[in-house]
Design a protein around this nucleic acid. Structure first.
Lengths: 113, 113
DNA sequence: CACCATGCTACAAATACTGTAGCATGGTGT
DNA sequence: ACACCATGCTACAGTATTTGTAGCATGGTG
């Protein structure tokens, strides 16, 4: 699957709008998960594999390449880590952590009724 | 694919943590896109199809069911719309819109070098 | 009753992802 | 120098997901 570059046509949208490229990227299996798990600090390939529990090396590598091309992560001697852009992106999505807790709670309440 | 319920094992994680269920959900093709496009207001099935440009009706319907089960959207006479939870979730991710613009700009600058 | 729009399903083809095996490279110890 | 191990990553076949097109069922309108 082609890397979703802003300005280009991407999966699901022909407009080239950056947000569409971003939604395409984040909508791919494991993209969000990798960013999420990398936020706890740099990780080697194998360690990242473990943080992600069940990702196949094939896909991990594919996603890493995409994320690297799109400058959300970078690889250093210490392994892979979020780039400054990646950190900024994570800052936006990090509230999802606590939001998910109250969401889970709400679903639980609902199912009691 | 089973609907990613918080508390259950989901694609990519066995821990049952709500955030993992959420990442699984949002990581599915078009989930984010549907939420994004619904934020501009309620839409009928066919209208939502058009907002999403290229989604197949099969998948649109599948996602709508998931999002409805997970209480992020609800269907009314006026069509589908974000639920209160969906609105809250959108509030978190909405900065992605402007973030994507500067990200696109940065990528463009980079490619000039 | 013909005509049209809408919500949605069917189903086969195309695409993406998984899982296991294992190769290539670069240490470390002897 | 050589066996031994860990790491980053690729190969590839099997499986799951997504797309695309066609079209059915229902309800409203003239």
């Amino acid at each position: 699957m082609a890397i979703p570059l802003p300005g280009r046509q991407v999966r699901g949208s022909t407009t080239g709008k950056p947000i569409m490229a971003l939604l395409d990227l984040l909508g791919r299996t494991w993209s969000l998960g990798i960013i999420w798990h990398l936020h706890t600090g740099p990780a080697t390939f194998r360690e990242l594999q473990q943080r992600c529990e069940k990702i196949s090396p094939t896909l991990l590598n594919t996603r890493l390449k995409e994320l690297k091309t799109l400058q959300l992560i970078e690889s250093q001697a210490s392994g892979y880590q979020l780039s400054q852009q990646g950190i900024d992106l994570f800052a936006i999505i990090s509230p999802l952590g606590s939001w998910s807790l109250q969401w889970a709670q709400a679903l639980k309440e609902e199912s009691k009724l």
